[in-house]
């Protein structure tokens, strides 16, 4: 089972850990950061929804390879993916995060929270107009968005501090996915059996590698849940600001999940 979890994870990772580590100091130039910041809020939301959807597609492939997942009824497969896909992406983000300068790998380079500023407010051109009119220079249209981005970075930082191996990250992702306490499961007992097997295998791995202290240091599950509901709140606030935006602006899988 341990081999299956690691193999499934490695086969469905977009980037190898060594590659992400090797490039961890390749950061965006200040001009490149400005270009991201000058984008309109809608453009940046669509861009991030696109990247997130790609990551979620990898999660679906990961799930399909996990022993026992495809034996569940399709209703439960969908329930588990709907509830867990974003959480798995957030856990996996620690592999693509440089905790030394608080940057994350995004579209080919590493960038900090400032890269995502346009998600929460109008681009720099809008700020210029605001200043000319004597209003606040950085009026925030979705102030909660900056909290969401910082919380996601804080979460990645706290996971990075645990220095998890690929096997450990793979198990954390598998356990986030095969969670028998998700609401609306039809065959909860079947999921609980899979979850139980994963937990035993994970404990054995931790014992073998003398990493048993990891379990006590993991962030509580409520923290992931909170990040997911913050994401939904911001998405709803974004839709209220842009009621005319065509649904087709977001990838179909993103619309289906959120």
């Amino acid at each position: 089972l341990t081999q299956n979890v690691l193999k499934s994870y490695l086969e469905t990772c977009a980037q190898r850990t060594e590659e992400l580590q090797r490039r961890r100091w390749e950061t965006f130039s200040s001009q490149e950061v400005c270009a991201y910041q000058r984008q309109s809020m809608a453009e940046m939301w669509q861009r991030c929804a696109g990247r997130l959807t790609e990551a979620i597609q990898q999660v679906v492939e990961f799930a399909k390879r996990l022993q026992g997942f495809m034996d569940l009824c399709q209703h439960d497969q969908i329930v588990l993916l709907k509830a867990g896909a974003l959480e798995v992406v957030l856990v996996g983000m620690c592999r693509a995060f440089n905790a030394d300068n608080r940057t994350v790998f995004f579209e080919g380079k590493y960038g900090g929270t400032e890269l995502f500023r346009a998600l929460g407010r109008a681009g720099d051109s809008g700020r210029g107009r605001g200043q000319a009119e004597g209003t606040a220079s950085d009026e925030e249209l979705l102030p909660g968005c900056h909290d969401l981005i910082s919380s996601i970075f804080d979460f990645a930082q706290s996971l990075c501090a645990l220095h998890c191996s690929d096997s450990e990250v793979a198990f954390l992702c598998a356990l986030v996915l095969l969670n028998a306490s998700r609401p609306w499961l039809q065959e909860q007992a079947k999921v609980a059996v899979l979850q139980g097997h994963l937990e035993v295998a994970f404990r054995l791995l931790l014992r073998r590698t003398q990493r048993e202290e990891l379990l006590a240091r993991l962030p509580p599950a409520g923290r992931l849940r909170a990040l997911c509901s913050q994401h939904l709140e911001q998405l709803q606030a974004f839709h209220r600001l842009h009621p005319g935006l065509l649904p087709a602006a977001f990838p179909p899988l993103y619309r289906e999940l959120f």
Partner: peptide
């Protein structure tokens, strides 16, 4: 309701 997820799950391991 979950057309895309159904499709992704039904496709063989790609």
């Amino acid at each position: 309701k979950h057309r895309i997820l159904h499709k992704l799950l039904q496709n063989g391991n790609s």
